[in-house]
């Protein structure tokens, strides 16, 4: 479960040094787009040494490796895969690539004797991947999917706008697939780092169509994301009342009961439980 996933450039010591203080649920150490081709070697060593030194980071550690179509990904994996990381993020992911990554990871996990299984977050940034999304979400290790709207817009040859009509279909399709398989649906980052109101609107829209999480490209975006991707006060209060009414009904041996004149049945109770689980996880109750 994640609200915010924060991108951090992998070759920037000043930013790495503080990457754990911004209260992001996950930090994505980026070896791909934030690192120039000539610095790929320094970035992967810096991130690896940083992780070796920082034994207990308070958040999920994600590494965005270079794509499987580059010369860099295998060295990336070799250097950074260890018990210190939780997740590999794969750019330009498709179904075949994810199967290949799974095999590679299994091999490295065995060779290095890892005590845990590394998860994978694919980035959907090709039109083909949008169409394949149902296959992608069922790939091994995948526990969340990120929409990469910038590259997707290039692939579609459309102009990326703040409102985002051009990516609406991709967003909804991604949410649908992730919801069906109960994994995180992670929205594309909001790229104007100076427009906090715009970020808020974008977050609210993403929540309204079902996204569970959002990525951030600047630490100053994290607070807004963390505040938006949680149940509202009203929802939590409602869920608490459902829980109480349900407990009362169970005592009385009632299967179905009503609250505020509305019928409460199993799906409603499950929804309330889901809200409460989230609220507890983020210390809202």
């Amino acid at each position: 479960m994640r609200r915010s996933l924060l991108f951090m450039p992998g070759n920037n010591p000043a930013m790495l040094q503080n990457s754990d203080v911004f209260e992001a649920d996950a930090v994505i150490y980026d070896l791909e787009d934030a690192v120039s081709v000539t610095e790929k070697d320094s970035a992967r060593k810096l991130v690896a040494e940083f992780l070796r030194f920082n034994k207990s980071l308070p958040m999920e550690v994600v590494i965005r490796i270079n794509g499987l179509d580059t010369d860099f990904y295998s060295s990336d994996l070799e250097y950074v895969v260890s018990d210190r990381i939780d997740t590999i993020m794969l750019p330009k992911a498709d179904h075949d690539g994810l199967l290949q990554l799974d095999k590679l990871l299994t091999k490295i996990e065995q060779e290095k004797g890892l005590t845990k299984k590394i998860k994978v977050i694919p980035i959907i940034e090709l039109a083909k991947s949008v169409l394949e999304i149902e296959k992608i979400v069922t790939c091994p290790r995948v526990d969340g999917v990120l929409l990469g709207a910038e590259d997707l817009s290039s692939d579609l040859d459309v102009i990326r706008t703040k409102k985002g009509d051009e990516i609406l279909y991709a967003r909804q399709r991604l949410v649908m697939a992730c919801s069906a398989y109960k994994i995180d649906s992670i929205d594309t980052p909001f790229t104007d780092t100076n427009d906090n109101d715009g970020l808020k609107t974008d977050c609210e829209f993403a929540v309204s169509i079902g996204f569970t999480s959002k990525s951030a490209i600047h630490p100053n975006q994290v607070t807004t994301i963390n505040k938006t991707f949680v149940p509202t006060k009203e929802k939590i209060e409602w869920a608490l009342r459902v829980e109480a009414a349900n407990a009362e009904a169970l005592k009385k041996g009632l299967g179905v009961f009503s609250l505020d004149g509305k019928m409460v049945d199993k799906p409603v109770i499950e929804r309330a439980n889901k809200i409460l689980k989230k609220a507890k996880a983020y210390k809202l109750i």
Binding site: P13, Q17, D41, S42, K45, L46, E49, F50, F53
Partner: peptide, 17 residues
């Protein structure tokens, strides 16, 4: 003002290069 791990990583990269 680099931390130890940064110095180590930079040195390892320089050696490899």
């Amino acid at each position: 003002g680099a931390l130890d791990y940064t110095i180590r990583a930079r040195l390892l990269t320089a050696i490899e290069r």
